[in-house]
Structures are given as structure tokens and as C-alpha cells.
Design a binder for these strands. Structure first.
Lengths: 147, 147
DNA sequence: TGACAATGAATCGTGCGCAATTAGATTGTG
DNA sequence: CACAATCTAATTGCGCACGATTCATTGTCA
């Protein structure tokens, strides 16, 4: 009767382009992070803590869109690696406060090479990268808003 | 001596914007896919097979950037769900050919609601979405090229 | 033809991601 | 003060990801 309904093409899907780009980033970061003994989500945790230290598990999770089911074991591994400490809050014993150690702070210097390598790999004018980042933020906000 | 080196801000990182957008997509897709008994990577496998059926595990993996370590158990679950068949190639017994079942083909109709819901959620002019998709493709290509 | 390299899938171990549940602490209310 | 509602982490179970290894099969070349 009506149209034969062409199959949705994988390469036409915006969601797949985002998926593939995330994958490509992970692949590009991996060797650098591996040399530092970090995984990508662990790197994101450090980025947050460098910006503001001494956060609860929940605060960290809000920024990264992760819950305690993911963060608790991840943070325990980072604690075992000597990057941070996990300590119950004295005032409110429901909270576990995450704080950087010296080693965790020092890691900020270690990732400068990584950041430089990525900037080199991207090799695009900054305004272009800024524009793309803002487009992605708006896209994510729209997706979340309707969720 | 020199500059105090401001900490890299999470929100300024393009990689995090991509990560967050991928997360937002997954979150938006989840309820629709769950109603169909699918996960997101399983949906990607279907998208590939609808476009061209009868592929080897390796061919599928090339399109989705996944290896047999990920695909083998995933495809076994999809086989158990009656969506596809896994069969050794008669000519070359190293290959396992993946073929859609009737149910797997029919699923193409089932996801029309999902696709419509997403188009509605995105709620942006098509040229804008096309542009963003092409930018992401170029970004991913650049990241892969230097890997 | 008989080594031997190359290929493709499966397997294993580790680390996310997430929903659902549990346990414990805190807060609000009568 | 009692007690229910709320809040926070931790735990559990399942499904990806991915590197590394193993195994069977195929291709190649002396």
C-alpha cells in the first residue's frame, strides 16, 4: 500500500555518530591514561576533584551522571591506588567525603602531556571545537529535558 | 615562577561533552528499547543487519567498533531471544555468519515508534542535526587517524 | 606436501554502567 | 520522645567493552 519504509541507515543516525565519537575519544585517550594507571572514568573523577576537592559520592555522581553502584568500586580502586581518600563525614554520617591525596593532586602535572597530545590530535581551530562542544551540550540538555 | 596552571575544567572538555551526549542518548533510548527487550548495542546490531543481512562477526564488529569478545556473548543473547541465527560458514569454517530471523526482521516495524519519539525529542531542524552529525564524523575520523 | 604464518571466533579477566535492593543515618512531625 | 519519611552509600546481578590468550581453520611458500 504505502511506502516500503526504507530501513534506517546506521550512518544517518545522530546517536551513532555520538556513540562512535565517544568510542574514538576513548580509544585515543587509552594509551596515555594507561601509562598513568588510569581509566577514562577515573580521569573524569580527577578532573572534577581538581576543580573542587572534598565532594561526596553523590556530588561526584551528579557531575558525571554516575550512581553509587558505579562510583563506589571505582573510588575504592582509586583509593587503593593512593589517589584519594574516602572518609565518612563526621557531621552527617550518611555522606562519604572524597579528597585528593598528594599523589592525586600531583597527577594534574602528569596529564599535561596527555592534554597536549589530544590538542595536537584534534588539530582544529579552537572556535570550531568550542562550537561543537556547545552544540553537544544543547543536544544533551534537550535529550535530558524530555527524559 | 611561571603561570599557576589553571586546572582543566570538566565542562570545557570536548571529550566530556561527547561523553555526556552519548550518555544522554542512552538514557533517552533506554525506556523505548527496554519495552522491546533490547539493549542499545543490540539495537545497533539490528540496524546493521537490516541494512545488509548475513554478515560475519568480524564484519559486524568493524561497523560498530566492537570485537568478538564483546559480540560473541551479545549475539548469543540475541540468538536466544530469537532475533538472529549464528551459523558456521560451510566454505570457510572460521567464519560465523549472522542472519536475521523473521522476528529480527519484524523488529524493524517495532522500532518505528522509538524513532518517531526520538525525532520528536530532538526537535531540531534536520539540516542542523545533519551538520552536527557530519562534524562528529570528522572528529571521530581525526581521532582515529592519529591513533 | 609439509612447516608455518595469518585469520576469525571464542574464552578469560578486569572495569565500567545501571537498575533494584538493602542498610544505616538523619530529618520532620505529632 | 517516638516514629515515619527521606536521604546516602553500599551491595547485587546483569550486560557490555576490551586487551590478551587460545584454538581451529585457511592460505602461503619453500
Amino acid at each position: 500500500m504505502t511506502d516500503p519504509i526504507p530501513p534506517p541507515r546506521l550512518d544517518d543516525q545522530l546517536c551513532f555518530a555520538v556513540y562512535a565519537a565517544a568510542h574514538a575519544f576513548g580509544h585515543a585517550y587509552r594509551p596515555h591514561l594507561e601509562a598513568l594507571g588510569l581509566t577514562y572514568p577515573q580521569y573524569l573523577v580527577l578532573l572534577q576533584l581538581w576543580e573542587r576537592d572534598d565532594r561526596s559520592v553523590r556530588e561526584l555522581g551528579e557531575g558525571l551522571f554516575l550512581d553509587s553502584g558505579t562510583l563506589t568500586p571505582l573510588l575504592k580502586r582509586m583509593e587503593a591506588a593512593g589517589l584519594l581518600t574516602r572518609q565518612r563525614d563526621a557531621q552527617d554520617a550518611r555522606l562519604v567525603r572524597i579528597r585528593l591525596t598528594e599523589r592525586g593532586l600531583a597527577m594534574q602535572e602528569q596529564v599535561r602531556g596527555l592534554r597536549q597530545a589530544m590538542a595536537c590530535t584534534l588539530d582544529a581551530p579552537q572556535p570550531e571545537l568550542d562550537s561543537l562542544r556547545e552544540q553537544l551540550k544543547r543536544l544533551a540538555a534537550r535529550l535530558r529535558g524530555a527524559g
